[in-house]
Amino acid sequence: MKQILLITDGCSNVGLSPVVAAAQALSDGITVNVVGVLDGGDLGEYGAKEIQEIAHAGGGMSRMASTRQLSQTVQMMTRKTVVQTIQQVVQKELKSVLGGEGAIEELPPEKRSEVVRVMDELGETSKLRVALLIDASASMKPKMAAVEEAIRDLMLSLQSRQGISELSVFHFPGNGHGDDASLDLDWTTNLSGVQSLFPKLQMRGTTPTGPALLQVIEHYRGRDDRRRGGEEDGMMSGYVV
C-alpha cells in the first residue's frame, strides 16, 4: 500500500496543478491525503477548495487541523486509508464472486464477520509506505515543530504494526534554487536515530505543490523500478475472499 500525505497551509501558486498531479499518483496506485494546518486563521476559500480537490483526485481524504490536533489527524487518516484501500480490493473480489455492488453491507451479518476478519488481518500485516510532503513556505514556519512531532508520532504507530512500514519525508519548495522539493529522509522504518528532520530549512515564498507531488511520485517509481523482478509488492495476491 502506498500513500502520500500532504501537509500544507495554503494554495499552490507555481507550476502544474496539484489536482492533476494527485490524479497521476492515484493512477500509479498511490493514495493522496491532505491535511490543511491552521492556527487561528483559515486557508481561505481557495485553499480549502484546493485541498479537497487534491484529496478527491488522489483517492484519499482531506481534513483541517490545528497544530494541536495534527498528530491525531495524521494517525487517523493513515489508518483509515489503509482500511479503505483494503476495502476496495475486497469489494472487487466480492463483486466478481457474488455480483451486485460488492459492498460489504450487502452481506448478511454472519458472512460479514469472516470478510472483516480477513480485512483486519490484511490491514495489520500488509506492507505500507507513507511519503510525507511538507509545505515549507514562510507561513508554515511556526508550525514546523508540530509537524515534526506528528511525523515522529506516526512512525511510532507504524512501528507497532505487524507488517513492514516505511516512511519518507519531503519538503517543498526545495533547498536548491528551482528545486520543487527536497528529500529530507529516505525510506526508513525507524526515526530514533534522527535528531532533527528539518535542520536547515530555508522558508521561501512559493508553493509549488503540483511539481512537488510529481517528484514524490517519481521517488516511488524509482523504488519500484529497482525492485521489479524481485519481491512482490502486491499485498492481496495470497488472499481470495
Binding site: 482500511v83 476495502q87 460489504i104 453491507e105 451479518p109 460479514r112 464477520s113 472483516v116 476478519r117 480485512m119 483486519d120
Partner: peptide, 12 residues
Amino acid sequence: TVDLQSEINVLQ
C-alpha cells in the same frame, strides 16, 4: 459497517 463488524468480531 466494517468498523462496527470488527468490534462485533472481538465481542464474539
